[in-house]
């Protein structure tokens, strides 16, 4: 039985990872070999040429920088707003908090694509087109409902007496949130941060709409704009190299937050 499960696990893993593996392998192929027929599944030799080309011949470093700024900013802003709202909701009676949350969740149900035009109009009115701040605000706006949902669930599991003890000790309300509630809700904060960061990192449509200037492209937009010398030439090698690089920060973020996430999974294990 155990062995069957293991085999199923391995097959599932391979199935999920296959497209990604294909991407990575293609990225390391020498440019000429990408189109060779019959298809060569494993490259004859490993080559870094695609990676070098991406950075040397294209402003890809710039795109990565833009993405890091926008995704980090969007995540932090979304978490800041969400944690403040969730903290306030926690002090309401449960039925009121849940009723309010249902309305807030409508924001999470609407597909972001539908919101592109209104978001564009708002950001334009703010004069933030081609400004990373515009994208940060939009990403935060799109992710706040999810953040509230996630953090509220974690916050309500923290006993109210801690807030009260903190009030008597002389903490201010924001002080309680920052120094008592958030540290205790760290696992939930980490999960929310990871998921929101990944959303921001991968988002394409809004990034394209709000930052049409090439200097402000984020990674997904930049990759889609990679083109060859003519309209008919698609630089697959470079595209795959770019995609491979793009996954690195996401893996790093998850690895970094993993400690907190795992801590959360075992927090209730020992009475205390």
């Amino acid at each position: 039985m155990k062995r069957v499960l293991l085999i199923i696990g391995i097959i599932t893993g391979l199935y999920c990872l296959a497209p990604f593996l294909w991407t990575v392998i293609t990225a390391f192929k020498p440019p000429g070999e990408v189109f060779s027929l019959p298809i060569r599944y494993l490259p004859r030799s490993l080559s870094l040429e695609n990676f070098i080309d991406v950075f040397a011949k294209r402003p890809f470093g710039r795109y990565v920088m833009n993405s890091v700024i926008v995704a980090t900013g969007g995540t932090l802003l979304a978490l800041a707003i969400a944690s403040a709202v969730a903290f306030r909701l926690r002090n309401l009676p449960a039925y009121k908090a849940l009723a309010l949350q249902r309305w807030i969740l409508i924001g999470a149900i609407v597909p972001p694509t539908l919101l592109v035009i209104p978001v564009f109009i708002c950001i334009k009115a703010l004069g933030l087109i081609n400004n990373p701040l515009g994208l940060i605000i939009s990403y935060a706006f799109l992710n706040v409902p999810f953040g509230i949902w996630m953090l509220y669930a974690a916050f309500t599991r923290i006993p109210k007496e801690l807030d009260e003890a903190a009030l008597i000790d002389g903490f201010s309300r924001p002080g309680i949130l920052a120094r008592v509630i958030l540290p205790l809700a760290r696992p939930a904060v980490a999960v929310a941060a990871a998921l929101i960061f990944i959303f921001c990192w991968n988002e394409f449509l809004i990034a394209l709409t709000l930052m049409p200037d090439q200097g402000h492209y984020t990674v997904p937009v930049g990759i889609s704009m990679l083109s060859g010398a003519s309209l008919y030439e698609v630089p697959w090698g470079q595209i795959n190299a770019a995609v491979t690089i793009t996954t690195v920060p996401v893996i790093l973020i998850v690895a970094l937050l993993q400690r907190w996430i795992v801590e959360g999974l075992t927090a209730g294990a020992v009475k205390g």
Partner: peptide
């Protein structure tokens, strides 16, 4: 007057120590 500004201290039934 808010709790922090009163000169009182409280011991809670479940102690309410800061776990972190």
């Amino acid at each position: 007057i808010p709790p922090g500004k009163r000169n009182v201290a409280m011991v809670f039934q479940n102690y309410a120590l800061y776990p972190h």
